[in-house]
Design a protein around this nucleic acid. Sequence first.
DNA 1: CCAAAAGTGTTAATAGTACACCCATGC
DNA 2: GCATGGGTGTACTATTAACACTTTTGG
Lengths: 229, 229
Amino acid sequence: MIHDYSFEDKVLLAVDCIIFGFDEEDLQILLIKRDFEPEKGNWSLMGGFLKKDEDLDQAANRILHHLTGINNVYMEQLYNFSKVNRDPAERTLSVAYYALINIAEHRQELTENYSAKWFKISDYPSLIFDHDQMVQKAIARLRYRTSTNPIGFELLPEKFTMRQLQKLYETILNEKLDKRNFINKIKSLDILVKLNEKDMVSSRKGSFLYKFDAKKYNAKVEEGFSFRL
Amino acid sequence: MIHDYSFEDKVLLAVDCIIFGFDEEDLQILLIKRDFEPEKGNWSLMGGFLKKDEDLDQAANRILHHLTGINNVYMEQLYNFSKVNRDPAERTLSVAYYALINIAEHRQELTENYSAKWFKISDYPSLIFDHDQMVQKAIARLRYRTSTNPIGFELLPEKFTMRQLQKLYETILNEKLDKRNFINKIKSLDILVKLNEKDMVSSRKGSFLYKFDAKKYNAKVEEGFSFRL
DNA sequence: CCAAAAGTGTTAATAGTACACCCATGC
DNA sequence: GCATGGGTGTACTATTAACACTTTTGG
C-alpha cells in the first residue's frame, strides 16, 4: 500500500528574515514598508514564499539576496510561526530566519538599491502580523547564540578593536561589562589575532585591530574547546 | 493592490514527534513501525500532517494523542526539516516536536492500545528519511533545555527520589555526577518540596520522596531567579 | 600641556569540585 | 550481624568580579 497524500491539506509557507546589523552603538534590524495589502504601508520583516524546488535555507538566502543584494552571511532558522489567522488574507505559516550582517561592508548596496531602513532594536515601529514576536524571539536566540558561538564577529568589520567587540556584546546582552575583565576573558579564549595595525579614528593614541582566527577556532573545537562568553 | 497569493507554491507540512521517556535507567524514545510505503516496515517517529484549521502546536498534540492516547505533556517545537527530497514520495516538509512523558504513568495506555515501542537512545534502530537527524537534534535541545529549565521533572513520576533525579540528569547529560554535589545544588535551588514519605522499593532504609514546587518556582522566576543546573 | 581614549594586574568573593564515613533497615 | 543503598559536610581549587592608574598623541 502506498499512502495517498493527496487528501492532505497543503499550505503556503512564508520565510521571514530578521536582519541584524550593528553600527558601533546600537543593534539594529532592517525593515521594509510593505507595498501590498493587507497591511500595505506598514513596516514588516523581509519575507517571501518557499518554492517547491528549494529548501528553507535556500529560500531564506534567496529572499535576503533578492531584497537587499546581500549574499553569504550567517543565517539561522529560528522558529515556525503557525497561528491559524496570523495572516488575515490567507492561511500562511512562516518560518523565521535571522541573519547577521556587517553594516559597514554592505551600506552601499543597501542604501543605493533598496528601500529598506535600519531601526534600533531599542526603538522600532510596530510590525505587521506576528513579526514583533519574531523579532523578540530572534533577539533571545541571538543572545544565547553569541554567548556560546563565535558569531558576534559576523556583525563587525573583519578587523575590529577590543572596544568595538566589547560594545557589541554589551549591546546584545544589554549589560555593561568591565573593560579589563572582558579583554582578559577574550584573550584567554585565544581565538583572535592581534594585528600590527591600529584604528586611528576613535582616539589619538589609536587602538590595535584584531581579527577572528576561524582556523584556530576550528582546530580548538576539534580538541574539545567550546566558546563561552 | 492586494497581493495575489494564488501563484505561490503550497506544500505538505508534516509534524513528527520525538517522544522521550525515562525508565530509571535509560533515556528512551518511542517509535513505530511504518505501515505504508515508502519505507513500509521500517522504524519511524510518530507523525502526521498539519491540517488547515490548526496550528503546529495543536497538530503535534493531536498526533501524539492519536498515536499514543497521551495528552497534556510538555512539548516543544524543534526545527523545520525541509530538504527537497527528504520524502521520496512527495515534497514534504516536516516540523519536528519533542515531547517529555512519564513512562510509568502512561505505560498502560501505551502497551495496551498501540503498537509503539520504546528504544534506548543509546541503541535504537535506524529510522526513515531524516528522522535520525531529528532525534539527534532533539537530544541536543533536551540537554540544553533541561539545564536551563526545570523540565526534567516531566520525565519522572510526580514524587521522586534524589537518586532518580540524579540518574535522570546523568543520563540526559551523559556524564556521572557527584551525589553530594548534586544534592547540594538541587537543594540550593530551593524549588523542591521534601515529602514525609519514603520510597521503599529501592532500598531497605527507604529514601525520601520529593515533588517539584511549580508555584514556588514561578514566584522565584518573577523575582529574577533562573534555573541552572 | 591637556583632553580623550587605550592599555594593563591584583585582590577578594564566589562557585565548583573532590572526597569518606555513618545510618537505617530487612533479611 | 551484615549487606545495601541513603544521607551528610568540609577543604581545596578555579572562576568571576571589583577596582584605578599610566600611556599616547593630536590639537
